[in-house]
């Protein structure tokens, strides 16, 4: 056996060069994936900032005629997206009311019965649910609520469709969070003679609050920008509507409507900017909560 372990200088240099190229390529590609967000923000801000005034937040969407006259006179289109904002708040709020309790309890069950067969099945189904296309959820909302319950398009139908959509994120984040909590905490509570339901509600869930809230907020931010399910359920509305059994607008629906009306195209940018900032804000607050409310154990 006479294997030389020597590496020639030339080869060594080549290797170092390859390393350098590889490292720099990594940095460049990492940078590249950060770029689109800023390009999008820049694009939306440049084109949309003129529309962002007080009335943008407090007035209903303009009609085609008003917008046409304003554009012809080179003025800012009057009106705003208040009907969309109110609609989004109601639809997303109601969806959260439905999905949060179910999701947290389900996630708790999965964490408490990590090995169980039924839990395994539920976990599998929830994972599958995550992959259901959003338009299909819209169809489901239509069949379940629009036709039999509200006899027409409604905010409620939109909420049901979106609640199904946000459920998996809440279930899985609750489960993952609770699994991290040491079992000794549960033992401590049980050894004080505390009944199981109080152990869960008063000790385990509060300890995992930051992780659970993070999942909830990410779930909300996921559905806040959804359009497809709402097209088949909430439909849209030109006026502010607070009755959940009536058709309702939402910010993403408005963007779609603006796109379809040549006179309102200029409103797309500001409405999109608003939606994007809302969702970015939700994501940032999720991160802040995860950090600040973290319980040390």
């Amino acid at each position: 056996m006479n294997i030389s372990t020597e590496i020639s200088d030339r080869k060594m240099k080549q290797r170092l060069l390859k390393d350098k190229i590889f490292t720099n390529a990594m940095i460049f590609l990492a940078f590249l994936s950060g770029v689109p967000l800023f390009l999008i923000l820049y694009q939306l801000a440049i084109k949309g900032y003129r529309q962002l005034n007080i009335s943008f937040f407090f007035e209903e969407a303009p009609d085609t005629m008003e917008a046409m006259i304003a554009v012809a006179n080179n003025e800012v289109i009057p009106g705003g997206i208040a009907n969309g904002i109110v609609g989004t708040l109601i639809i997303v709020g109601l969806a959260s009311l439905i999905a949060i309790p179910i999701g947290i309890i389900c996630g708790t069950y999965l964490a408490e019965n990590a090995e169980g067969k039924f839990a395994g099945l539920v976990r599998f189904i929830v994972d599958m649910l995550q992959g259901v296309p959003s338009i299909v959820l819209g169809v489901i909302g239509y069949i379940w609520i629009v036709k039999p319950v509200t006899n027409g398009f409604s905010a409620l139908a939109g909420s049901v469709a979106l609640s199904i959509m946000m459920l998996p994120s809440i279930v899985r984040s609750t489960e993952e969070t609770l699994k991290m909590i040491p079992g000794t905490l549960k033992e401590a509570a049980l050894s004080l003679g505390v009944p199981y339901h109080k152990v869960i509600l008063k000790v385990i869930l509060p300890t995992g609050i930051s992780g659970i809230l993070t999942g909830v907020i990410l779930g909300i931010s996921r559905i806040a920008g959804e359009t497809a399910p709402l097209m088949l359920t909430a439909l849209g509305s030109t006026v502010i509507n607070t009755n959940i059994t009536e058709p309702s607008s939402a910010v993403p629906l408005l963007v779609w409507e603006f796109y379809n009306d040549p006179n309102l195209v200029n409103m797309i940018w500001s409405a999109s900017l608003f939606l994007l900032l809302l969702i970015l804000g939700l994501n940032l607050s999720a991160k802040a909560i995860a950090r600040k409310w973290k319980v040390q154990y």
């Binding site: 040491p182 905490l185 033992e187 401590a188 050894s191 003679g193 505390v194 109080k198 008063k202 300890t207």
Partner: peptide, 26 residues
């Protein structure tokens, strides 16, 4: 009552609430 190998005070509670936890939680 029982005390465990690793100290396990309830992390969301104050010292005061930890001591009184047996009453509060029940």
């Amino acid at each position: 009552g029982m005390v465990f190998q690793r100290p396990n005070p309830f992390p969301t509670m104050s010292i005061y609430d930890n001591v009184i936890a047996g009453f509060n939680l029940n």
